[in-house]
């Protein structure tokens, strides 16, 4: 039974980055997308920029997929704790960054509709949040490389 639980956690660890990243992207893109849709009612142009900004939180799903591919290997008792720990922690970083990046994008969209010239500055906080997701992603790749088993074929 104990072995089953440990192996299950290992399998969960492999898929958690994709699952949590995707959940974060869903919420983040939905928030920003709703703001973009609302803003369309109040602007006369620049629609593409508003809708484009709402897609920024989708990158966390891509990071999650790449980490999942890096962690994917034959799940053993030795590898499971590492897989679970890395998968869960990077997944949490991705979910929070995606959700909060969505809020940043929504604020940027709301600001940009009345002051289009500040779009670059308004979107900067979203880019900064993205930077932290990239840090988590890169170090998950590095740490994941040290987990016993190596990537599966």
């Amino acid at each position: 039974m104990e072995t089953f639980v440990i192996l299950s956690l290992g399998w969960a660890g492999i898929f958690l980055p994709t699952a949590l990243g995707a959940i974060g992207s869903i919420v983040g893109c939905a928030r920003a997308g709703q703001a973009a849709s609302g803003a369309l009612l109040d602007v006369e142009g620049g629609y593409g920029r508003l809708v484009g900004a709402s897609a920024l939180p989708s990158s966390q799903t891509i990071y999650g997929i790449v980490v999942t591919m890096q962690l994917n290997r034959v799940v053993t008792i030795e590898a499971s704790p590492g897989l679970f720990a890395v998968g869960l922690l990077v997944g949490l970083a991705l979910i929070f960054s995606a959700i909060l990046q969505g809020s940043c994008c929504a604020s940027a969209i709301n600001t940009t509709k009345s002051k289009p010239e500040v779009f670059g500055l308004a979107i900067a906080p979203a880019a900064i949040v993205e930077g932290f997701a990239v840090f988590a992603f890169i170090f998950a790749m590095i740490v994941g490389g040290g987990i016993p088993g190596g990537p599966a074929n």
Binding site: R31, A32, Q34, A35, A36, S37, G38, A39, L41, D42, A106, I109, N110, K113, S114, K115
Partner: peptide, 13 residues
């Protein structure tokens, strides 16, 4: 209510 849509649809106060 979809607050994101509604708030973003209101002009700057």
């Amino acid at each position: 209510t979809n607050y994101y849509s509604l708030v973003a649809s209101l002009p700057y106060m």
